[in-house]
Amino acid sequence: MKTRYFALVAGIVFLVIGLLGFVPNLLTLPASAPDLAVKTGYGYLFGLFSVNVLHNIVRLVVGILGIVAYRKFVHARLFARSMAIFYGIVTVLGLIPATATLFGLIPIFGHNIWLHALAAVISAYFGYMIWERELQAA
């Protein structure tokens, strides 16, 4: 049950954050912000997390996948494992200046780095821990 609830909660959180990224009043864009090829919806959500339309779409997709994965343990575990790997890679890419904007498409620098790292660690915990009762029920 723990892994399934993780998928549901993570899905809802990512869906909400993805939707909030489309609210213009929640975005600010400092003059020092790096240039992006995709400027639509570009700004800092709550003044902290850099987003643009593509970043928001990725979060919406992750959110929807999490909610759908909640239905079965095996899907929830696959979701958590995939999220751990995906956000682990995104964290590393965010640390490298040449790839911190995913080639100008998606901003993954600044505060997004620790947010993605946190998502990867929590996802790894739920994706790779073996919950005996969940395996028996699956």
Rank of each mutant, 00 (worst) to 15 (best):
M1I: 01
M1A: 12
M1K: 07
K2Y: 06
R4D: 00
R4I: 00
Y5F: 09
Y5G: 02
F6T: 05
F6Q: 01
F6C: 00
A7R: 03
L8S: 08
V9I: 15
A10F: 10
I12P: 00
I12H: 01
V13W: 04
V13D: 03
L15P: 02
I17K: 01
G18I: 07
G18V: 06
G18Y: 02
L19W: 08
L19N: 05
L19F: 11
L20F: 13
L20R: 08
F22Y: 15
V23E: 09
P24L: 05
P24K: 09
L26C: 08
L26M: 07
L27Q: 09
L27P: 06
T28K: 15
L29N: 12
P30D: 07
S32L: 10
P34V: 13
P34Y: 11
D35C: 00
D35W: 12
D35T: 15
A37Y: 12
A37F: 14
K39N: 09
K39C: 04
K39L: 13
K39R: 11
T40A: 12
Y42P: 04
G43A: 08
G43M: 07
G43D: 03
Y44D: 03
L45I: 04
F46L: 11
L48T: 11
F49C: 09
F49P: 06
F49Q: 06
S50G: 15
N52E: 14
N52A: 11
N52F: 05
V53P: 09
L54R: 13
N56L: 07
V61D: 13
V62W: 12
G63F: 03
L65V: 14
G66K: 14
Y70I: 01
R71W: 01
K72A: 13
V74H: 12
H75M: 15
H75Y: 15
A76D: 03
R77Y: 03
R77C: 02
I85R: 00
G88P: 10
I89C: 05
T91I: 02
V92N: 08
V92Q: 03
L93Y: 05
L93S: 08
L95Y: 11
I96S: 06
I96K: 02
I96W: 01
I96E: 04
I96M: 02
I96Q: 02
P97G: 07
P97H: 08
T99M: 04
T99G: 02
A100Y: 03
T101A: 06
T101C: 10
G104M: 09
I106F: 07
I108K: 04
I108T: 10
G110L: 10
G110H: 09
H111T: 09
N112M: 02
W114Y: 15
W114E: 13
H116F: 15
A117G: 11
L118V: 11
A119E: 10
A119F: 11
A120I: 09
A120K: 12
S123R: 04
A124D: 03
F126C: 00
F126V: 02
G127K: 06
G127Q: 01
I130C: 04
I130W: 07
W131E: 05
E132Y: 02
E132T: 14
E132H: 13
R133G: 04
R133M: 10
E134I: 00
L135W: 14
Q136W: 11
Q136A: 14
A138T: 05
